[in-house]
Write a protein that binds this DNA or RNA. Sequence first.
DNA 1: CCAGTATCGCACTGATCACTGCGCTAGTAG
DNA 2: CTACTAGCGCAGTGATCAGTGCGATACTGG
Lengths: 190, 190
Amino acid sequence: MSTTASPAPGAGSRPGGRSARVRAAVHLAVRELVADDPGEPLTIPVLATRAGVHATTVYRRWGTVGELLADVATSRFSGDIVVPDTGSLRGDLERYASDLAKDLCDPDTLALVRATIGIGGEQGAAACRGERQQQLEAILERERARGGQPPTLERTTDAVLAPLYYRGVFTNDPLTPEWTRTLVAHLLPD
Amino acid sequence: MSTTASPAPGAGSRPGGRSARVRAAVHLAVRELVADDPGEPLTIPVLATRAGVHATTVYRRWGTVGELLADVATSRFSGDIVVPDTGSLRGDLERYASDLAKDLCDPDTLALVRATIGIGGEQGAAACRGERQQQLEAILERERARGGQPPTLERTTDAVLAPLYYRGVFTNDPLTPEWTRTLVAHLLPD
DNA sequence: CCAGTATCGCACTGATCACTGCGCTAGTAG
DNA sequence: CTACTAGCGCAGTGATCAGTGCGATACTGG
């Protein structure tokens, strides 16, 4: 999956071009189909038709549904959340957790996550994590720069990231702002 | 999905019968195929052939791959872990977390989880959670009976269950016994 | 031992899917 | 404006899949 001759996943990213338009249409079709009916096989002819694009194009640019889903997830979960800078570690984490919770509240997003890790395996799972790890690390690093002693990245992941993803993906419980605050509160003792 | 006329998911569970043998073969085939090549569509004819059973049977007993996966996951994640009774809350939780971690370490199990939530959606996710919630509640209840004041189920879920599932499903990091102990240690202050 | 019933295997049909040459058109460079 | 290249649409093929009557077979209670 790494050395396969994927013709041009990033070649058509020049905005305005026909490639970019097709790419956007296909991505949108994938997200709509996954959202509309999760658990459906999500075949290439179907999504290509929905995107108003010929299946040939999808076969050539992405090859398999797994790679396409990973691509969609990557572009969906990258750059969607900006690392906050509230001046304090607690503020940053609460804000970040709140943003992430808002993101993971959307049923369509959850459906995309489930489908991606279901088909893409570890590859897809990595795409769904996006840059969360680096973003958390950035928050912790900033606290260190302030002279504070933040918890480790592993601990922060366990205490904040994991519950958010677990609750979103595995349960139906809502990701309320109050709850996300308690996550941070338990991580950071007074 | 609850009132649908599923002919006999539980009718053939009498041990020794032909139904039970077919059921076992199909379940095994599903687990093998999912483990062998995660992300593959997992079609009914293929798995039926692998199970040495005709596709017709699978269509009739389960209908869709989603229901079949949910069934497999349910029987896989029910009764696999016994609630420990070490005499202390900490001991119980450490033991339980360790057992669960050992379970979620198996790549085949993880592949099954991913495939199930990918196709089965929320239904499948629930099947993968199995009886974890009740088991945790039982542990906490026992502590209450001892006169202790255990944390809430929600808090315990966030602190122990969520990290285990998150790390297993979304990352490649190993679920070491030391790590699971730290989860419990952070939940229970000295 | 014998009827009754549930479950499974078999042989199909229509539909869908993955995949591939070939020509065309839209962007690009000069 | 013109030549070039990359990406896309088109049509078609072989293979696979979902789903369905029908008969055969294995378990059940009497």
